[in-house]
């Protein structure tokens, strides 16, 4: 019979599958959106696991998976220098400009 307990070494396996991030397109015409993650041994399995885990209620028509280690992210500590400079470029937005009422189609 299985033996188990705090000191059982077999509890810690070395066989955990890599982690994958899952992106789902919920319907044609929309972007793929991050929905969560899962474990899989390879990309084929990751796509199928994503199908079995994340689309049981017709949530998607297309699936992307990316191994989590391949995702590179911006650093939250640099968020200020990254994103704040865009805050004062109001002239990039159409609402910055006034258009006479009589002008249509602009």
């Amino acid at each position: 019979m299985t033996n188990w307990g705090p000191n059982n070494k077999s509890i810690m396996s070395q066989s955990e599958w890599p982690l994958w991030e899952v992106f789902i397109r919920s319907k044609q015409g929309l972007d793929h959106k991050h929905v969560g993650s899962l474990h899989a041994a390879d990309a084929t399995m990751a796509v199928q696991n994503a199908r079995d885990v994340y689309t049981r209620r017709l949530e998607g028509v297309s699936i992307w998976v990316v191994e989590s280690t391949h995702i590179h992210a911006s650093n939250p500590d640099e968020a200020a220098e990254f994103f704040d400079p865009a805050a004062d470029k109001v002239y990039r937005h159409p609402t910055f400009y006034t258009v006479p009422d009589s002008i249509k189609h602009m």
Binding site: L38, A40, N49, D52, R56
Partner: peptide, 11 residues
């Protein structure tokens, strides 16, 4: 054997 396959077999 693993959660992901538990879901797959139930499907």
């Amino acid at each position: 054997p693993v959660l992901e396959q538990d879901l797959a077999m139930a499907n």
